[in-house]
Amino acid sequence: MPDGVRQLRQYTLPGHGADGLRRITAKRVGDGEVSSLLHATVKEGDELTLSAPFGDVALDGGEAPLVLVSAGIGCTPITAMLEHLALTGDTRRVLVLHADRPPAAHALRADMERLADALPGGERIFWYEEGHPRTGRMSLDGVDIPAGAVVYMCGPVPFMRAARGELIAAVVAPLDLHYEVFGPDLWLGAARRRRDLKAAWPAFSY
């Protein structure tokens, strides 16, 4: 930062170019200290120092159909998965479901369309709050969820909670639902959080 303070932030690597350069996607938040600085000062050709990648969700191999579910900036890891699937010529059925505000606010929209359309078994459905035939919140009514599908989700916790309920109702096994939360995982139950804390710091009482 300009005052010399180092600020750690996590951003998704949504893909890379043919030249091997990685890219990050940073949503500009009105009062966001780091996102505002990136948008205001970083220019093409600048070099950024990154840590090794890490996260809770990674796309597994296999032959099961995939359902990729996202809302808002949660599309970034989904786009990375789509790029991997397209580059490896994956032939599984891949259903891409995304919800956003107006279409103009949909980050990486062109990439998601291009990559999903490049997959032999790819299909995409987008919902927008306005300005699109599918207006309103994401609803799985009438959406054909593949049998035996493995699901990856990313987006606001209330959105993922609602999507998870609909997916389970569509006979997706809970163990086949994987998700990534941007920020503290407030979705975890209190018991799970206590268990994780005890594993990390066993000398303390909870």
Results as ranks from 00 to 15, higher is better:
33 E>Q: 13
130 E>N: 10
25 T>N: 08
32 G>I: 00
158 P>K: 09
14 P>E: 09
59 L>E: 10
129 E>Y: 01
92 R>S: 04
164 R>C: 10
197 L>R: 13
198 K>F: 04
87 L>Q: 13
24 I>A: 10
88 T>R: 06
50 L>E: 09
141 D>A: 14
187 W>E: 14
22 R>C: 04
26 A>D: 12
123 E>F: 03
63 E>K: 10
61 G>R: 07
59 L>V: 10
65 P>Q: 09
43 K>E: 14
134 R>Y: 03
138 M>E: 06
3 D>R: 06
7 Q>Y: 15
77 P>Y: 00
126 F>K: 04
73 I>Q: 07
18 A>K: 11
83 E>I: 10
172 V>E: 05
81 M>R: 02
122 G>A: 10
79 T>K: 01
33 E>N: 03
176 D>S: 14
120 P>F: 09
24 I>E: 09
72 G>V: 07
148 G>L: 08
22 R>A: 12
205 S>K: 09
50 L>H: 05
111 D>F: 08
162 A>H: 09
106 H>W: 03
70 S>L: 05
26 A>P: 00
182 F>Q: 08
69 V>C: 06
186 L>Y: 12
201 W>H: 14
109 R>L: 14
32 G>T: 00
57 V>W: 01
191 A>D: 15
185 D>L: 07
40 A>W: 00
199 A>Y: 03
176 D>P: 02
44 E>R: 13
126 F>E: 15
172 V>P: 05
154 C>N: 04
24 I>R: 07
184 P>I: 00
64 A>W: 06
189 G>N: 07
15 G>F: 09
86 A>P: 00
112 M>R: 11
14 P>T: 08
184 P>K: 03
155 G>Q: 11
159 F>V: 07
197 L>H: 08
148 G>A: 08
33 E>D: 09
18 A>H: 10
8 L>N: 05
111 D>W: 13
174 P>K: 10
134 R>D: 05
90 D>E: 02
47 E>R: 15
13 L>H: 13
26 A>G: 02
8 L>C: 02
30 G>C: 00
206 Y>G: 03
127 W>K: 05
11 Y>S: 03
90 D>W: 02
114 R>Y: 02
84 H>K: 11
201 W>N: 13
124 R>L: 14
55 G>H: 06
177 L>W: 03
143 V>A: 07
19 D>S: 11
127 W>C: 09
200 A>H: 09
36 S>R: 15
147 A>N: 04
204 F>C: 08
8 L>P: 02
168 I>R: 09
108 L>W: 06
197 L>E: 13
54 F>T: 01
173 A>H: 15
63 E>M: 04
11 Y>T: 10
46 D>H: 12
97 L>K: 09
96 V>N: 13
123 E>A: 15
197 L>Y: 06
143 V>N: 07
14 P>D: 11
140 L>H: 04
51 S>I: 03
107 A>E: 13
147 A>D: 12
185 D>H: 03
115 L>S: 11
124 R>D: 06
79 T>Y: 01
56 D>N: 14
142 G>I: 00
146 P>S: 10
125 I>N: 05
174 P>Y: 04
106 H>D: 12
41 T>I: 00
130 E>Q: 15
80 A>H: 02
